[in-house]
Amino acid sequence: MFQVSVTNRCTCTVRTVFLRADGFTSAVAVDPKLFRQAGSAGYLVGDGRRIPSAKSVTFQYAWDHYFMMTPTSIQAEC
């Protein structure tokens, strides 16, 4: 079981955070409000909602190895 925390380290609130996670899969269901594939844009975090500064969206998945996840798109509200 792996736990992923997407933390907003920006001083501004961010929203519509997308991650790249090539080949992502999980043996247990991941809450789609926390992390879901959203077409070619990648995986949407937190249902696209606002993540205030220093706050996180956290989810868990189960697989035999971890998946590298990197941000591909973020909208800052400064």
Rank of each mutant, 00 (worst) to 15 (best):
M1I: 05
F2H: 15
F2Q: 15
F2R: 09
Q3I: 08
Q3P: 00
Q3D: 05
Q3K: 15
Q3N: 08
Q3G: 08
V4I: 14
V4R: 02
V4M: 09
V4F: 06
S5V: 02
S5M: 07
V6H: 04
T7L: 09
T7N: 01
N8M: 09
N8Q: 10
N8K: 12
R9H: 09
R9Q: 13
C10S: 14
C10V: 00
T11R: 09
T11K: 14
T11H: 05
C12Y: 09
C12D: 14
T13K: 13
T13Q: 04
T13P: 05
V14R: 01
R15N: 15
R15C: 11
T16G: 03
V17H: 07
V17S: 11
V17E: 07
F18D: 05
F18K: 04
L19E: 01
L19W: 04
L19K: 02
L19G: 03
R20S: 15
R20T: 08
A21E: 03
A21S: 14
A21T: 05
D22R: 08
D22P: 01
D22A: 15
D22Q: 04
D22S: 11
G23L: 04
G23R: 12
G23N: 14
F24D: 07
F24E: 12
T25A: 15
T25E: 12
S26F: 07
A27K: 12
A29K: 13
V30T: 12
V30A: 12
V30I: 11
V30F: 08
D31T: 10
D31A: 11
D31N: 15
P32R: 06
K33W: 06
L34S: 07
L34W: 01
F35S: 05
F35Q: 03
F35W: 07
R36C: 08
R36W: 01
R36K: 15
Q37N: 13
A38N: 12
S40C: 00
S40F: 11
A41K: 13
A41Y: 10
A41G: 00
A41C: 02
G42H: 13
G42A: 11
L44E: 07
L44K: 02
V45D: 09
V45G: 02
V45K: 03
G46A: 06
G48Q: 04
G48F: 05
R49F: 13
R49E: 15
R49I: 01
R50W: 03
R50P: 03
R50C: 02
I51L: 13
I51W: 02
P52D: 09
S53C: 14
S53V: 02
A54E: 12
K55S: 15
K55E: 14
K55I: 01
S56T: 14
V57H: 10
V57A: 07
T58F: 01
T58M: 06
F59M: 05
F59G: 04
Q60I: 00
Y61E: 02
Y61G: 06
Y61F: 08
A62C: 10
A62V: 11
W63K: 01
W63T: 05
D64T: 13
D64C: 02
D64F: 10
H65K: 13
H65C: 03
H65F: 10
Y66Q: 08
M69H: 03
M69R: 00
T70R: 09
P71G: 07
P71I: 07
P71T: 11
T72P: 01
T72W: 01
S73A: 15
I74W: 01
I74P: 00
I74D: 07
Q75W: 01
Q75D: 11
A76P: 00
A76V: 08
E77G: 06
E77I: 12
E77D: 14
C78P: 12
